[in-house]
Computed example of a mutant assay.
Amino acid sequence: MKIVEITKEPVELYKILKFEGIVSSGGEAKAVIDDGQVLVNGEIEKRKRKKIMSGDVIKFMDDEFKVLLK
């Protein structure tokens, strides 16, 4: 599991996918979320602007990321 450090919370889900390089663009981030390919804390998340907090776990494809406040 990889660690994603954020400096403030909450952060919108699509922004984490974009800025961490998990996907190549914000548009792609929104598309994979809309397609149900992203899980947050084990649940399929379809809200692009879902507020992510420290301690949340994001899963996309075979990668898992734990979000921690820096």
Rank of each mutant, 00 (worst) to 15 (best):
V38R: 00
K2W: 12
K2T: 14
K70W: 06
K8D: 09
E45N: 07
F19L: 15
I3N: 05
D62I: 00
I16H: 05
V11A: 12
F60Y: 08
G21D: 03
V67Q: 12
E28G: 01
D63F: 01
G21F: 00
G55Y: 06
V38G: 05
K51V: 09
K66H: 10
F60V: 01
K48T: 05
V40F: 01
K59T: 13
S54D: 10
K46M: 14
K70A: 08
I6P: 09
E12G: 09
I16P: 08
K46F: 07
K70E: 09
M53V: 12
D63I: 05
V11I: 10
T7L: 12
G27H: 03
I52Q: 00
V57E: 12
I44A: 12
F19R: 10
V32F: 07
M53E: 15
E45R: 09
I44F: 13
S54Y: 08
V40M: 00
I33Y: 11
V4F: 15
G27R: 04
G55M: 10
K66G: 06
F65N: 05
P10H: 04
K15Q: 13
S54E: 11
M1G: 13
E43W: 11
K2H: 15
G21S: 05
E9W: 00
D62R: 00
N41S: 11
N41V: 13
I16C: 09
R49F: 08
K8E: 10
I22W: 03
E9L: 00
E43P: 01
V4T: 03
K59G: 08
K48R: 15
K18C: 04
F65D: 04
S54I: 14
T7I: 14
A31Y: 03
L17P: 07
K8P: 02
D62A: 02
L69N: 10
T7G: 13
R47K: 14
V32C: 07
F60E: 00
E28V: 07
F60P: 00
K18F: 15
M61G: 04
A31L: 02
M53D: 15
I58S: 00
R49D: 13
K15W: 11
K70S: 12
G55T: 15
I58L: 01
F65Q: 04
A31H: 08
S54M: 10
E64S: 08
I33L: 11
F65P: 08
E5P: 04
S25N: 07
V4I: 15
E5I: 10
K30Q: 07
E64Y: 02
D34M: 04
L39D: 03
R47Y: 07
T7H: 09
S54T: 02
G27S: 01
S24G: 15
P10N: 01
D35E: 11
K18N: 12
I6K: 06
E43C: 08
V40Y: 02
I22E: 01
D35K: 10
I44Y: 14
V4E: 03
K46S: 13
I16V: 13
I22H: 06
V23E: 01
K66Y: 06
M61V: 12
D62W: 01
M1Q: 11
L69G: 13
G36M: 10
E12V: 06
K8Y: 11
Q37E: 13
